[in-house]
Design a protein around this nucleic acid. Sequence first.
DNA 1: CGTAAAATCACCCGAAAGTATGAGTGATAA
DNA 2: TTATCACTCATACTTTCGGGTGATTTTACG
Lengths: 156, 156
Amino acid sequence: MFQKLFGSYKIILLYGLSLAGLLFLMRWLEFRLLILDHATELYAAAIAIIFMVLGIWLAKHLSKPKTVLVEKTVYVDQSENFVRNEKVLDELGISKRELEVLELMAQGLSNNEIAARLFVSLNTIKTHSSKLFEKLEVSRRTQAVEVAKRIGIIPL
Amino acid sequence: MFQKLFGSYKIILLYGLSLAGLLFLMRWLEFRLLILDHATELYAAAIAIIFMVLGIWLAKHLSKPKTVLVEKTVYVDQSENFVRNEKVLDELGISKRELEVLELMAQGLSNNEIAARLFVSLNTIKTHSSKLFEKLEVSRRTQAVEVAKRIGIIPL
DNA sequence: CGTAAAATCACCCGAAAGTATGAGTGATAA
DNA sequence: TTATCACTCATACTTTCGGGTGATTTTACG
């Protein structure tokens, strides 16, 4: 409140000056129109218009803008912004290679396909998957994938 | 709405009052220095105040509210609000029993476990899964689960 | 009532998956 | 230097999976 008042101090000064000018204009109009017929009516109309405009202007500039908050809900697909749970990955002691195997497993690849993809032997993949199952405390690849997705080490 | 504007209303009111005071001061000065007809002046002041208030009121009530769009991001937990894609299910001709098997498959259960769970023989589960693979156009259970989740017939 | 679709089960066989165990290599930390 | 660990690969063995085929029983529907 006070901060706002101080902030608009310059503006208020400006108002004061313009108001002073306006009053002088009034005085002048009064002096000029006093001689004419229906001078009072014209004078009053002029004052009415000028002050109404001033009022509008004041309201526009001194009032806080009317704001209407419109909430737009944005549904975000989790699979898009996946962040790997490195902590869990570390706690379970899952290595990089094992994670690679796990990811390919999740894509539905067979051990042979994974072996070919990673340029290693089938037995190597078997070893990796066995260790993976131990660490994830499962006994099948399908369960491994299930658990891995749930604990956030591979995307859903 | 009015509560929000109350702060600035006070400023404007204050300004209006000081303006009135100024006019009265002028009037007083005028009265003290020169003797003039003051009926017109008071009339003018009244008009000025009334129309300024009117202007303020008009501005307040006729101004369009500024709309501020606030985006609210909602992370959708797909597993919670899952709606089965019945259409696809029908198009692929997947039966109730097959769907049951598929769901248990997705949980990582072996055929034997599924058989025990559904109180049927292992061979029955094999038949179901075989037909499922045909309908889903896959050749492995992991792929079946993968596809099924993607096309929305089982929750992610 | 008859028929089609679904569900059930069986047997065989090969492929894939998983278990157990051992071992070699390279990088890194104690 | 030794020890540890990740990664690699291998052999042997068991279990599970998936394909193929065929059959019987339910269930649903016109």
